[in-house]
Design a protein around this nucleic acid. Structure first.
Length: 323
DNA sequence: AAGGACCCCAACCGCCCGTGC
DNA sequence: AGCACGGGCGGTTGGGGTCCT
């Protein structure tokens, strides 16, 4: 019944690693590289579970690990990313070079939680503690009535967000976004990735953006780029949400096309992105995020018309597709 | 100095996801 | 479609170190 264990527990060591074990593991990986963790212990002459070897390497032995205390800058990055991603430690770690998910998770639980509480901020919701109860009540009546999440299946575990329909207007501020996110079952709707709120962030950071790292569509024309830059400038002037999701890039790694990681790296240039609704036409200009213009561009209108027969479209509302 | 309380973090556990067949 | 497997993830634990009385 259930899964077979990843190793024979009777013949494996547990607990703290010895220097000799560390040395064996490092020597083996130096020669053979990472991977195939299940067979590694035997090949390396270690009486350890493969998972244990992997963890030891990733969290402790890897040569590129940064040692020492977290800096204030790292603290703030962690807080910011946590407010967007929740307990997605590996995604957060992917944006903090030299830090591991385990390290960040421990650091969060032992330091940052307290730090936020001392600032009067709830570490889970990232809202003021004294607002917590009132905000929860308010959120239930405001945000939940403005957005409807449509999924492809009725199973929470397998659900994939396909549409977001806003009866009035999409969230206008980071607070609203956070509130909306907290109301979704984030764990079960991992495909609905809050990191894609980056579409709300036209603010340019010092670090290279996704598109500057050749992650953007190769089909984009110069005109389209200009259009997007203009949109960014306009958006910048019109709102103050700075999610700074261009902070560093995840380590070079390939992801499956629909993974959260993959979508984290998708171009953030189009102002049509909304909660991960990456429209297929780069340079689409349907949404300006200024709270005034809530129009769909022609392309998106056409797309919506194609979809309208399937959805109960509110005349006053907006319709976003999630890919 | 003793020992109980508390803190920190490496390591473990069980589950989930992606892939190949 | 269903299964098996490897890898990865987040939550939790437990042991060692430090602080406090």
């Amino acid at each position: 019944m259930g899964r077979s264990p990843c190793c024979e527990k009777e013949h494996t060591n547990k607990g703290a690693w010895t220097k000799e074990e560390d040395q064996r593991l490092m020597d083996y990986i130096r020669v053979h590289g990472e991977g195939c963790w299940r067979s590694l212990p035997k090949a390396a002459g270690l009486l350890r579970c493969g998972k244990s070897c992997r963890l030891r390497w990733i969290n402790y032995l890897r040569p590129d690990l940064k040692r020492g205390n977290f800096t204030d800058e790292e603290d703030e990055v962690i807080i910011k990313l946590h407010s967007l991603l929740g307990n997605k430690w590996s995604l957060i770690a992917g944006r903090l070079p030299g830090r591991t998910d385990n390290e960040i998770k421990n650091y969060w639980n032992t330091h940052i939680k307290r730090k936020l509480i001392s600032r009067g901020i709830d570490p889970q919701t990232h809202r003021p503690l004294n607002e917590k109860t009132a905000a929860a009540a308010a959120a239930a009546t405001t945000i939940s009535t403005t957005a409807t999440i449509k999924t492809t299946t009725s199973s929470a575990a397998a659900a994939k967000v396909t549409h977001l329909e806003f009866k009035n207007a999409p969230p206008q501020s980071l607070a609203e976004i956070s509130l909306l996110k907290s109301q979704l079952d984030f764990k079960h709707n991992s495909n609905f990735h809050s990191s894609q709120y980056s579409s709300f962030n036209p603010k340019k950071t010092e670090t290279p953006s996704v598109e500057e790292n050749n992650c953007t569509s190769s089909s984009m024309t110069t005109d389209e780029e200009q259009q997007q830059k203009q949109q960014k400038r306009e958006s910048h002037q019109n709102q103050d949400v700075n999610l700074d999701l261009t902070i560093g890039l995840a380590p070079a790694k390939t992801f499956s096309p629909n993974s959260a990681e993959s979508r984290l790296q998708q171009p953030v240039s189009s102002s049509c992105h909304l909660f991960g609704s990456v429209l297929t036409r780069p340079g689409c200009s349907c949404w300006q995020m200024d709270g005034e213009r809530r129009e769909l561009c022609r392309n998106c209108q056409n797309q919506n018309q194609n979809q309208s027969s399937k959805s109960n479209h509110n005349n006053n509302g907006l319709y976003y597709r999630y890919y």
